[in-house]
Amino acid sequence: MTKKILITGITGQVGSQLADYILENTPYDVIGLMRWQEPMDNLYHLTDRINRKDRISLFYADLNDYSAIARMIREIQPEYISHLAAQSYPKTSFNIPIETLQTNIIGTANLLENIRQLKEVDGYDPVVHICSSSEVYGRAKPGIALSEETQFHGASPYSISKIGTDYLGQFYGEAYRIRTFVTRMGTHSGPRRSDVFFESTVAKQIALIEAEYQEPVIHVGNLSSTRTFQDARDAVRAYFLLLEASEQGKIPCGEYFNIAGEEAFKLPEVIEILLGMSTRRDIRVITDQERFRPIDADYQMFDNTKIRSTINWKPEIPARQMFADLLNHWREEISKGKIPLNR
């Protein structure tokens, strides 16, 4: 029987690209968890296959609905689970802190608790990937590479929610021997990146300006941050290799890994790169106080030693190619008449 992988948050950038990777590189079937009202933009290229149930299908449920998650786990019983669903926007989390904490912490607990109970009843024993975030490290000291043992520092409700998610993944692995592992992905981008994130909103605004939907002015927030960038398509490859390694018993239950790019940029450098790819030469950049967070994770440099010693992986897509692909993504979307909000 063909093995199944459940991807929660399949409509997001990373979830949809993980689905693409699984369908292109493995024989496994994909089941995507989504709420019925979520936008399908990142899955339109797969809707024909979804309609035909050609190795990919959808399950409608909400992480906060315990009984719906219970029904999903009982019915599907996937061999692999990649738990990516979350309220994933740090700045937005300052406005909706309770929803962020509820979805990311309690939603993750709902998933893991249902797996635990089914394991006790009939021995169900999947490999479970819990997606945390590099935001758990918060405001780090400049000049220090973040390793997996760096102290957590909650710098937003989102960051705090991911600290809870991270600890839940570790706890259920250590306490109940569920084959969990936790990933803390650094800044990642490329096609399908949501426009609420820095480099994507810059690329989107450039594309809007080129199409004459916006005056030649880009609005940005805090530019003092320095961080590594990686393409999300590299990250999902790491996710899958870790799933395989865990199934093979090469990863202890509850283990945790940084996954980050190895090219670092100050945010003004990212703007310069994207502007250099534009067809316009008259674009100005303006700092907008409304785009600032109360606290920012303004230094994120990572140590990838642990993951590179566990699986045969390293980032392969150059950052400049990632930025070009991101800009072209927005150009293509806008050319189709999909005019995004200016945010």
Results as ranks from 00 to 15, higher is better:
residue 189 S to K: 04
residue 160 I to D: 14
residue 162 K to R: 11
residue 185 M to K: 04
residue 141 K to C: 13
residue 179 R to P: 00
residue 168 L to T: 01
residue 169 G to H: 13
residue 188 H to R: 12
residue 145 A to P: 03
residue 163 I to H: 05
residue 172 Y to T: 05
residue 181 F to M: 00
residue 193 R to Q: 12
residue 190 G to E: 06
residue 143 G to R: 11
residue 166 D to N: 03
residue 194 S to A: 06
residue 201 T to D: 12
residue 201 T to E: 07
residue 195 D to C: 06
residue 159 S to V: 05
residue 167 Y to A: 08
residue 194 S to Y: 12
residue 195 D to A: 10
residue 188 H to Y: 07
residue 169 G to P: 02
residue 162 K to S: 09
residue 201 T to G: 01
residue 193 R to Y: 04
residue 183 T to G: 02
residue 182 V to P: 01
residue 141 K to I: 14
residue 185 M to T: 09
residue 136 V to K: 01
residue 190 G to L: 04
residue 180 T to I: 01
residue 152 F to V: 14
residue 152 F to A: 07
residue 134 S to P: 00
residue 163 I to A: 04
residue 132 S to D: 04
residue 171 F to A: 15
residue 199 E to M: 14
residue 180 T to Y: 03
residue 147 S to N: 14
residue 199 E to K: 10
residue 188 H to E: 09
residue 138 G to H: 07
residue 189 S to L: 13
residue 167 Y to F: 15
residue 178 I to Y: 08
residue 177 R to W: 11
residue 146 L to A: 09
residue 200 S to A: 13
residue 146 L to S: 07
residue 139 R to M: 15
residue 171 F to R: 11
residue 135 E to L: 00
residue 184 R to W: 02
residue 156 S to G: 08
residue 161 S to I: 10
residue 136 V to Q: 01
residue 190 G to A: 09
residue 182 V to H: 01
residue 188 H to Q: 13
residue 143 G to M: 06
residue 177 R to H: 15
residue 136 V to S: 02
residue 184 R to F: 09
residue 137 Y to M: 03
residue 176 Y to C: 05
residue 202 V to C: 04
residue 185 M to N: 14
residue 187 T to V: 14
residue 191 P to Y: 05
residue 139 R to E: 10
residue 187 T to F: 15
residue 155 A to S: 09
residue 134 S to Q: 04
residue 196 V to I: 08
residue 135 E to P: 05
residue 191 P to V: 12
residue 193 R to P: 03
residue 181 F to N: 02
residue 135 E to R: 05
